[in-house]
């Protein structure tokens, strides 16, 4: 098996771990972290293809990952702020109970 295939396997398995976590847990923070894991799995793919791709000198994969990390940081900040706001309204961060539009 070539290293590229190993990298892709790693990233797809990580994606699925994140998916299962995001679907199975009811805690909003853990769901957010699962989504965060899926983003990281995508980043691993970008780096793997940059490393073994035909044109590593262009560095597109690296740049994409840098932008993705910045966007993921913004996502985490806003998402967790939302979690705190939801918690303040209903003293609970279980996802299935956050079903009212009126606070």
């Amino acid at each position: 098996m070539s290293p590229l295939q190993l990298c892709l396997l790693l990233s797809s398995l990580l994606f699925c771990v994140g998916l299962v976590g995001a679907l199975a847990r009811s805690n909003t923070i853990l769901v957010l972290l699962g989504v965060e894991l899926m983003l990281n799995a995508a980043n691993i793919n970008f780096i793997a293809f940059w490393r073994y791709g035909p044109n590593p000198a262009a560095g597109t994969g690296v740049l994409f990952v840098l932008f993705a990390i910045a966007v993921a940081a913004a996502e985490a900040a806003v998402g967790l702020a939302l979690v705190i706001a939801v918690y303040r309204h209903q003293k609970n961060i279980r996802l299935q109970e956050a079903n009212r539009l009126k606070g």
Partner: peptide
């Protein structure tokens, strides 16, 4: 259900990766 969904996605992805010849 989450495990089934995740396992399904994992199966498809792993199958696709292992089934694709990569000439790098």
């Amino acid at each position: 259900r989450a495990l089934v969904a995740g396992g399904g996605v994992a199966g498809i992805l792993v199958g696709a990766i292992l089934g694709t010849p990569m000439d790098v």
